[in-house]
Design a protein around this nucleic acid. Structure first.
Length: 469
RNA sequence: GGUCCCAUCGUCUAGCGGUCCAGGACGCCGGCCUCUCACGCCGGAAACCGGGGUUCGAUUCCCCGUGGGAUCACCA
């Protein structure tokens, strides 16, 4: 069994979007599953479109997703000599030729062919000329005139292409730089890549690349073309569909594990299982259960999955991901057990880290304003006796365990003759400033006696100030 | 337009000839639990694109139609 080598080769001309992230995840998972190697390569042969900002952005997104690479990043712009060598090899071997047709001429022949109902392809004008490398001449690959190229795709099965449908594409530009097809194939050969998992928008490129592999005397890799990710309108995912960059999801409070889980499940399945940890994925991922049809991106489901991952995550790990949000909000939060306990009370009720950062506020800041509606409804004079009673009992309490607190509330209920609902709501408003929060015992247990009593007293004073006798 | 791919609930999907009056998940609608909100639990509505074959039997295999997508650069 040979060692599996996969790769992810983005072109640095924008951010890492969901579709790209998914193919990165697939390649990474497959390599990990097979105990293989995952190569990261930057396809920047088009200098005009490539930017350092994109390289940085993509790298950052990969790291956030937790996709680590074993080799690279390689930059095609630094491998020009290697490409030139292979181009020369193709020319020498009669697989490629120089062409001096101008872009305008080629454009023209395509247009004419289109008008007469023919195939819009290069007509082979320079094919037999045996031109020597002239200034500004391009190099074209010589496609076999007859026959077929058969792709045995790992997910789509057997696909047959008529070579006659292909045209002699450019492999080397007038300025001597290689084009995409040439560079990819040479890279994959020289880097030992033997498994290529990519979007199925590449299937039509595949025969050209297969021919290139063969002309260079190299064994064919395994191809696995995975279906596209579409937007709700069933067209290719783009900015129109809202946030599509990976980092945008990070900023919306999505956990990397949730996004990875979601992306993989879009197009791949393992029976009825929906929730996967990273380890789970590595163990179970395989090429043969990748679906064949395109999938629509469904933000609701991502959110639901994110909620599940938040629930399943450890408070410590969540704290790491939450810290940036807390900093942004300006809270005086530091990593540690207080933070983790606070997080624990919110795990079941947060769909995103943004939700959590919002709802965690009262743990870090004193309550200065009360929810208006809640105040009107709950901060009446009837609330005074139970609150006062609670303060007294709390004051005498040694430990603030959940059980002890429950006992305290029970006795307050007995003394005042009120139900828990009548007592808990005003207390909640006093402690959090809102009418919605985690359970009242949980809150007090985390907040501690001091803060709880101080807030209760403040609320009592507030009620006395604002209500009539 | 040529070429290529795809087709199960609104969406993600299970199903690899009979176990399917089609299963799970998200969302939606009821109910339960309950100190609020969630969580959780229980229940419900909701799909095999159409037509031909093949077969004792098609959601599953084949063909055609229809619909959707991808791609046709000196971009990747």
């Amino acid at each position: 069994m040979k060692k599996i080598i996969t790769r992810f080769p983005p072109s640095p001309s924008g951010h890492l979007h969901l579709g790209g992230a998914r193919t990165a995840v697939f390649n990474w998972l497959y390599a990990r599953h097979m105990g293989g190697t995952f190569v990261f390569r930057i396809e920047d042969t088009d200098a005009a479109r490539s930017t350092q900002a994109s390289v940085d952005g993509i790298t950052e997104a990969m790291q956030w997703l937790g996709i680590d690479w074993d080799k690279g990043p390689y930059f095609q712009s630094q491998r020009l000599d290697i490409y030139r060598e292979h181009i020369q090899k193709l020319i020498d071997g009669g697989h490629a030729y120089y062409c001096t047709c101008t872009p305008a001429q080629v454009e023209d022949m395509r247009k004419k062919a289109m008008e007469t109902g023919g195939k819009p392809k290069y007509d082979g004008t320079c094919r037999q000329k045996g031109l020597a490398g002239a200034n500004g001449a391009v190099v074209r690959f010589k496609i076999p005139e007859a026959g077929v190229t058969v792709l045995n795709d790992a997910v789509k099965g057997r696909i047959v292409f008529q070579n006659g449908e292909l045209d002699d594409f450019v492999i080397c530009r007038g300025d001597g730089t290689p084009t995409y097809h040439l560079a990819v194939v040479v890279d994959d050969i020289t880097m030992g890549v033997n498994t290529i998992i990519r979007g199925d928008d590449h299937v039509n490129n595949t025969p050209k690349q297969m021919l290139l592999f063969q002309a260079l005397g190299s064994e064919l890799p395994t191809f696995a073309h995975v279906p596209m990710v579409l937007g709700a309108d069933k067209t290719r995912l783009s900015k129109r569909h809202g946030a599509t960059s990976v980092t945008a999801y990070r900023d919306q409070g999505i956990l990397p594990d949730a996004l990875v889980n979601f992306l993989v499940r879009l197009g791949w399945s393992h029976g009825d299982q929906e929730f996967f940890t990273r380890e789970d994925l590595i163990e179970k991922f395989s090429l043969d259960t990748i679906g064949r049809s395109a999938g629509v991106f469904n933000p609701e489901k991502l959110l639901a999955l994110n909620a599940d991952h938040i629930k399943a995550s450890s408070p410590g790990k969540l704290a790491e991901h939450l810290m940036p949000f807390l900093k942004d909000a300006g809270y005086q939060a530091t990593p540690g057990s207080y933070l983790e306990q606070a997080i624990e009370t919110l795990q079941a009720r947060s769909r995103t880290l943004v939700d959590m950062a919002r709802d965690i506020r009262f743990y870090f800041e004193d309550v200065t304003v009360y929810d208006e509606k809640g105040e009107k409804k709950l901060f009446r004079r009837e609330a005074l006796p139970p609150m006062t009673c609670l303060v007294e009992k709390l004051d005498a309490l040694e430990d603030c365990s959940h059980a002890a607190l429950e006992a305290v509330f029970r006795s307050v209920m007995e003394e005042t003759g009120l139900g828990l609902g009548k007592i808990a709501q005003p207390v909640r408003l006093a402690l959090t400033g809102t009418t919605v929060s985690p359970g009242i015992f949980e809150i007090i247990a985390v907040l501690g006696k001091e803060k709880t009593i101080a807030r209760l007293k403040a609320a009592i004073a507030h009620i006395e100030d604002t209500t009539d006798r």
